[in-house]
Write a protein that binds this DNA or RNA. Structure first.
Length: 504
RNA sequence: GCUCCGGUGGUCUAGCGGUUAGGACGCCUCCCUUUCACGGAGGAAAUCGAGGGUUCGAAUCCCUUCCGGAGUACCA
């Protein structure tokens, strides 16, 4: 039987990295086994659904490079792939009806107040809270009929068997046993007629031929109920694999209150999708060897359930940044440039940084990459600075000098080189040596600077390189000076040097 | 409270009865060098949560305990 997995988010907001990691593992597993990854939308809670956020889900998946061959946005034979539509189409009805007929489920007519009181009294007595029978598990048909006649809204609950041990075989943790008496009767169909997650997801998994369920650990506790449900329906449950939680620095489950945790937040900040994917995959999964930097395909090749960790992990931004840098350096200039251009042209980029004024991100330098008319210069700039940036956003500040002459000079460096007697002579001589643009490569500029060094009898190259760099870029650090000059060209260099001289 | 899961350097992890407990990030030192990076070479950093067993031998198996986390809805 071929592998079929699914990523089944509920559209309650932009997916955060924990959800995306789940989606990624599904994709990786499907690729590894030549199977199918299905995207299914679980919108059975109308009140919590955020309209339009399916778009964010799709965007997030595409951003990190996750593929799905079937489901929302991709079609397939098991549609529709949106649960509210499935519910409307009556796809769940025969199954819960069958459960009621066979006695595995029952109608319950408790009011919210009654349930509230029940929980309160359970808490007061130090008991487990939940619906362990209530007034309706063993009610007679006459009583139910009466409630219905009174027009009381009802729900369908699953009848969890008593005095049994429910066994969940988890792909990561192995065999987990639950005394069935600790499990309460979950609602399958809500009073508004919609199925709950418990019911819809499991029915759909069966109907869609899902073979493996990869989901967050927060589902582990309800897994035994899902097992009971499958058994009650006479179906074989898929393999279950519960993924460890990703925590924030404070040790609690990662959420909005930890700041930027949505996958798309990282895109806005200029992280490469692959880098994010690579990084989050390594929280909770280990490929075994000591190779860490991988593409999606390399990860898929190495992906094994046995490599999944049972313990939770902390999201370490430092390591993400390192990994991002490695991926940036590993890209060829052409691909990198198109990433930078895409990033610079995305309207979200500007609005994101406008909301973070202290970030140091240089939007003007970035917007230069959105301009399609200067491709060669852009490519040179990317080539020049890619060794020393981490995020795509860094390209703005790092390559600003390629676009325009410096408007100011780094204060400390300016003071330092002003005080050195040879500085003005050096800058003067270099400027005078810049006579032609024709055929000037990095080594020609190096030759020029070295000849200035010898003719002025300066011991080291530093006192000539640094003032020139300061004049050209306004900064004391940056790309190799000779390469930089070659990109700028003699004319531009001379103008900047002369201007520096005038300011000196 | 109840149920379940987890616990190897600060962080991510390798390890499945015998290793000087390995790697990566971060940190420090040095080298390279026109700066900053990159790259390279080293270093500090884990008595494997703790306590008991089992065993010639335990991070690895068993028990207890502590701590952490998740769930505990007509939310997913």
């Amino acid at each position: 039987m071929s592998v079929r997995v699914r990523y089944a988010p509920s559209p309650t907001g932009s997916p955060h990295v924990g959800n995306i990691r789940t989606a990624l593992f599904n994709d990786l597993f499907a690729r590894r086994h030549g199977g199918t990854n299905i995207l299914r939308i679980e919108d059975t809670d109308r009140s919590r659904s955020v309209p339009g956020c399916e778009a964010d889900i799709v965007e997030s998946l595409k951003y990190v490079g996750i593929q799905w061959q079937e489901g929302y946005g991709a079609g397939g034979d098991c549609g529709p792939y949106v649960q509210s539509e499935r519910s409307l189409a009556g796809l769940y009805d025969p199954h819960w009806n069958r459960l009621i007929e066979s006695g595995f489920a029952y109608w319950a007519f408790d009011t919210p107040q009654e349930l509230e009181e029940m929980r309160k009294s359970q808490t007061d007595q130090g008991l487990a809270t939940g619906y362990f029978g209530g007034a309706w598990r063993d009610a007679s048909e006459v009583e139910r009929e009466k409630a219905r006649a009174e027009g009381r809204p009802g729900v369908v609950r699953l009848r969890i068997p008593r005095d049994e041990t429910i066994i969940v075989m988890d792909g990561v943790r192995g065999k987990i046993e639950y005394p069935s008496n600790t499990l309460d009767d979950p609602v399958l169909i809500k009073s508004d007629g919609m199925p709950t997650y418990h019911f819809a997801a499991m029915v759909d998994d069966h109907l869609m031929g899902v073979t493996h369920i990869f989901r967050g650990e927060e589902w582990l506790g309800s897994a035994p109920k899902h097992i009971v449900l499958f058994k009650s329906l006479g179906w074989d449950p898929p393999e279950m694999v519960h993924l460890p939680v990703i925590k924030g620095r404070d040790g609690s489950k990662l959420s909005k209150r930890h700041g930027d945790t949505a996958a798309l937040d990282f895109r806005r900040q200029g992280y490469l999708g692959v880098a994010l994917a690579n990084f989050i995959a390594l929280i909770g999964w280990s490929p075994g060897g000591d190779k860490e930097v991988m593409s999606i395909n390399e990860m898929a090749e190495a992906f094994e359930i046995r490599g999944i960790q049972p313990s939770s992990g902390v999201f370490d931004l430092d390591k993400l940044m390192w990994m991002q840098g490695v991926h940036v350096r590993g890209m060829d200039t052409g691909s990198l440039l198109s990433e930078v251009k895409g990033y610079a042209s995305n309207p979200e980029t500007e609005s994101y940084w406008a909301a973070h004024p202290d970030s140091g991100v240089n939007m003007r330098g970035l917007s230069y990459f959105a301009d399609d008319s200067r491709h060669d210069l852009q490519a040179s700039a990317v080539e020049l600075v890619k060794e020393r940036v981490t995020t795509l956003a860094d390209f703005g500040k790092a390559s600003l000098f390629v676009l325009e002459a410096p408007s100011s000079y780094e204060e400390a460096a300016l003071v330092k080189w002003k005080a050195v007697p040879t500085t003005s002579q050096v800058v003067q001589s270099v400027a005078e040596g810049l006579t032609t643009d024709a055929g000037m490569g990095p080594s020609d500029f190096e030759g020029l600077l070295r000849s200035v060094q010898t003719s002025l009898r300066i011991e080291k190259l530093g006192p000539v390189v640094h003032p020139v760099r300061l004049a050209l870029t306004g900064a004391s650090t940056g790309p190799g000076l000779f390469e930089l000059m070659a990109v700028l060209g003699s004319t531009d260099c001379r103008e900047r040097l002369e201007r520096f001289l005038a300011d000196l």
